[in-house]
Design a protein around this nucleic acid. Structure first.
Length: 554
RNA sequence: GCGCCCGUAGCUCAAUUGGAUAGAGCAUUGGUCUUCGGAACCAAGGGUUGUGGGUUCAAAUCCCUCCGGGCGUACCA
């Protein structure tokens, strides 16, 4: 079923002959507002109010809303008829997708996110990319796009010289078994602190690059161990990938990439290196160092070529931190010249996570906060809250709740923030039961579930009638779910979805406080139960699209 | 030096891309309810959107000047 805003928007566009620019209106003016009229009037040198008058004469929306009104300099306001809202809600309640249409033209979207480095623990710096990319993938899929997720792990580089010599001579097998990445990290630091081993490390690296069997085997073992550790984190976060083509996957392609870039004149020699220069910019994208080695720009171009030929995507999304903006600008600019046609390339970047002192989040000893330990703490803190609030629950149930609440809180705190800015990490704020937090939404969901437990059989598909103003308000908000999802995907801004869900929970609370459900008489009782069910379904779906679990009790 | 991101209530953040009187939570103050989970709901105070100009019917949003912060800026990723 098409969304309400889509219907109205199409209607106005047909009459206007230009985009309607429909948006949710301030409730005191109506439910939706078209403000494309002023722009068109100006271009045509017409009086905007007269044009608006002409447009509303042509609109046939009698089944949908009250007669549209003109306000201000030329806004057209629409106020939905309760009967129409009720009919839409009834339809949505019988739809597995809660009234969210599948996109008319599905796109192929590649999403590149998370991308941790092998032999290093994942830390807080990885969480935003991981969670953001996962959410965008989930929403894209739900809207009907073909989404391909790829974890571009850092599994190649000069650090392997040091890791290999450390592995061969200083490896502690017991430590390796207990904490693989911890031991690898120790080996790396140990060798890095020994300048006298630098040449030996370099020699091991050269052997690896030349295909030495022993070094290749060690390298692969290190990758395997690292991937297993990453997987533990991803399992806890509920994140998965279609592919994990690391940087090394593209190694064999790099010489040909540079040769081609040189052949077509894009890459030129400068100080012994091969570079792609851009007009008006001092620093080039270097694709081959003076010593012959390749860089991540080279790998990114090879990766891009592979993805284009392999998947023919309409869009490729790179989710990284904000510090890589220049790099991706250069890669995208190079790609635009290198390929006859490039997909829509988007760099979705995020700010850093700061401690409450406003400085980058670190442990007390100044180390990066390990992601695994952060998630442990989230669950512990959530467990303490659950134990306090609901001590009669069995231990295993409490743990399960704590997992959903703790992990959910960390994710939600991140996703509810505008991704481009730095944000301040605060346990107390993210675990608060009030305000725009995961626990608040999870609790709102629990309250609805509680109604169903008491009401008995609620599987009926009764028609919805909207009598009380708070019912109508809740219902109208429900009808905006699909608009929200489309907007999130269009601008890569999950905080619009969290805002939507928070408002949904708020409107439900008001409805809940004003409208008895179980004690009301038929047919109101059944109608309200359907409204509750739909609200709960959308809360669950919305949270699920954010990668957050709901629970039945807490 | 140059470039990118930013500056909004005491604090943490919104504002659907130029739309009407800039909104939430926390904190503060006051209120509701014999309540389907009070882990709730309602209300009040709190703002010259860093500064000064410009563009237009309309600016937190676009352009320019400063001030302040973060991050980049030729062979790490």
């Amino acid at each position: 079923m098409p969304s309400v805003s889509q219907i109205l928007s199409d209607t106005v566009e047909r009459a206007l002959g230009a985009p309607a620019l429909l948006r949710a209106a301030d409730p005191k003016f109506g439910d939706y507002q078209a403000n494309g009229i002023m722009t068109v009037a100006k271009a045509r040198n017409e009086n905007p109010r007269a044009l608006a008058e002409k447009i509303i004469q042509q609109l046939d929306v009698t089944g949908i809303c009250e007669p549209p009104t003109i306000a201000g300099p030329g806004f057209i306001n629409f106020k939905l008829k309760p009967v129409f809202v009720a009919a839409q809600i009834t339809g949505a309640s019988r739809d597995e997708r809660h009234g969210v249409p599948v996109v008319a033209k599905p796109k192929t979207i590649v999403i590149d996110f998370s991308s941790p480095n092998v032999a290093k623990p994942m830390h807080v710096g990885h969480i935003r990319s991981t969670i953001l990319g996962d959410t965008l993938a989930r929403i894209g899929k739900f809207l009907g796009h073909r989404v391909i997720t790829d974890n571009h792990i850092g599994d190649w580089g000069t650090q392997f010289g040091m890791l290999i010599i450390g592995w061969k001579q200083y490896r502690n097998d017991a430590a390796l078994a207990a904490d693989p990445i911890g031991e690898l990290e120790r080996l790396y630091k140990f060798i890095n602190d020994k300048p006298e081993l630098r040449d030996a490390a370099k020699a091991e690296l050269v052997k690896l690059q030349q295909g030495d069997a022993e070094n290749l085997a060690i390298w692969q073992k290190i990758i395997e161990l690292s991937k297993q550790e990453f997987e533990k984190i991803y399992r806890r976060l509920g994140v998965s990938f279609d592919h994990t083509f690391g940087e090394s996957f593209y190694n064999p392609m790099l010489p040909a990439v540079v040769a081609d870039l040189r052949h077509c004149g894009l890459a030129t020699e400068s100080d012994g290196a091969f570079c792609i220069f851009f007009p008006g910019q001092d620093s080039p994208l270097i694709v081959q160092k003076a010593d012959g080695a390749f860089l991540y720009g080279t790998t990114d171009l090879a990766t891009l070529k592979y993805r284009i030929t392999e998947w023919q995507p309409d869009e490729i999304v790179y989710v990284t931190d904000a510090r890589q903006q220049l790099h991706f600008k250069q890669v995208f600019a190079a790609a635009a010249k290198w390929f006859p046609a490039v997909p829509d390339l988007r760099h979705v970047f995020s700010g850093s996570i700061l401690g409450e002192d406003g400085k980058p989040l670190k442990t007390r000893s100044g180390q990066n906060v390990k992601l695994g330990e952060l998630l442990d703490e989230a669950e512990e803190r959530a467990l303490a809250v659950v134990a306090e609030k609901n001590p009669e629950l069995p231990e295993d149930v409490r743990r399960q709740i704590a997992r959903a609440v703790g992990i959910g809180a960390v994710k939600y705190a991140d996703l509810s923030q505008n991704r481009t800015t730095d944000y301040i990490f605060s346990w107390d704020k993210m675990l608060a039961m009030n305000g725009n937090t995961a626990p608040y939404l999870q609790y709102a969901y629990v309250r609805v579930q509680s109604i169903f437990r008491k009401a008995g059989d609620t599987t009926g598909a009764a028609p919805v009638t909207l009598e009380h103003p708070t019912e109508l308000d809740l219902a109208k908000h429900i009808l905006r779910f699909s608009d929200t999802l489309e907007a999130v995907l269009a601008d890569d801004k999950p905080n619009w979805l969290t805002g939507y869900l928070y408002e949904l929970a708020g409107k439900f609370s008001v409805f809940y406080a004003n409208c008895p459900v179980i004690q009301s008489v038929e047919p109101t009782r059944s109608s309200r139960l359907v409204l509750c069910r739909l609200t709960a379904d959308i809360m669950k779906r919305g949270l699920n699209l954010l990668g957050i679990d709901v629970i039945e009790q807490m």
